[in-house]
Design a protein around this nucleic acid. Structure first.
Lengths: 120, 120
DNA sequence: GCATGTGTGTAGTAGTTACTACACACTCAC
DNA sequence: GTGAGTGTGTAGTAACTACTACACACATGC
C-alpha cells in the first residue's frame, strides 16, 4: 500500500503531476485561481503551515480534481455538512458510526449500496 | 415536541432539576467538580459565553448524567472519536452519512441494530 | 541583458477559542 | 449580625486559526 502522505505532500504531488503537462498548474497560477497568496500555498505544500480552512481546501480540490472529503481528512478535518447531519441526530449517528468503526470496507460499502438502491 | 433548547439553557435546566433535591448541584459545586471557574459556568449557562471545549463538555455530561453526544451537538460540536473514524475512511463514511441524511430515524435505527446484531 | 515567471523567506495581523482571577451583591441559618 | 454559600460582573490573556503583503533569488526565453 502507498505510504500515507501528509496534506502538503499530497497537494504537491497532485499539482506537480499536472504541471508536467499543463503550465497552468504552477504554484502561482493555482494559488491565484484558488484565491490565496502563493507564499501561503508554498508553505502549505511543504507542511510548514497547517492546512488552510475548509473553503480553501474545497477550492484546491476543485482545481486539482481531488476528492474534497479526502483532502479534508488529510487536513484533519471533516466536511461541515457531515457535521451538521450528525449534530441533527447525535445519538443515532454516533451509535451508527461507532458500530461501523471496526467493520471492513466491503461491509460498510454494502450498507451504502443497499441504502442507495432503496431497499428502504 | 419540546422546543429546542440552547446549550446553556439545557445545562441550566438539567442542573436546576437536580439541585432541587440535592444541594451538591449548586453552580459552584458543579463547577468545582468539573474543574472550571464558577463565573465561567454561570456565563455558559446563560449563553453569555460560547460553549466550552470538548473535555469540559464531557465532564459536564458525567456530572449531570447527560448524553455526551447530545451535549456536544447542542454545543455545535461532534465527538472527536467520531471525527477520527470518519477521517480514517473519508469517502466511505461521507457517502454513508449523506445517504442517511434524509432517512427517517427508524430506518437508520434498523441499520444500527442489524449491524450490532451481527448479520455482518 | 532584461522581462517574465518560478518557488520561497520574513514579518505581521485580525479574529476566535477557551478559559482564569477576583470582586461584588444577595440570602439564609443560627 | 456575621459567616457560609449562592449566582454574577468585569477584566484580562495565552494559544491557536487562517490568512496577507512584500521582498528575494533563481531560471528561461527571446
Amino acid at each position: 500500500m502507498p505510504k500515507p502522505l501528509t496534506f502538503g505532500q499530497f497537494l504537491r504531488e497532485s499539482r506537480e503531476s499536472k504541471v508536467a503537462t499543463d503550465r497552468g498548474f504552477s504554484l502561482r497560477k493555482v494559488a491565484e485561481r484558488v484565491g490565496i497568496e502563493p507564499s501561503y500555498l508554498s508553505k502549505i505544500e511543504r507542511d510548514e503551515q497547517p492546512p488552510p480552512g475548509e473553503a480553501v481546501i474545497r477550492q484546491l480540490a476543485v482545481e486539482l480534481s481531488e476528492d474534497p472529503d479526502v483532502l479534508l481528512a488529510l487536513a484533519g478535518k471533516v466536511s461541515s455538512d457531515l457535521l451538521a447531519t450528525i449534530r441533527s441526530r447525535p445519538r443515532l449517528f454516533a451509535d451508527l458510526i461507532r458500530q461501523l468503526k471496526s467493520m471492513p470496507d466491503h461491509a460498510v460499502l454494502r450498507l451504502v449500496r443497499e441504502v442507495r438502491d432503496g431497499s428502504w
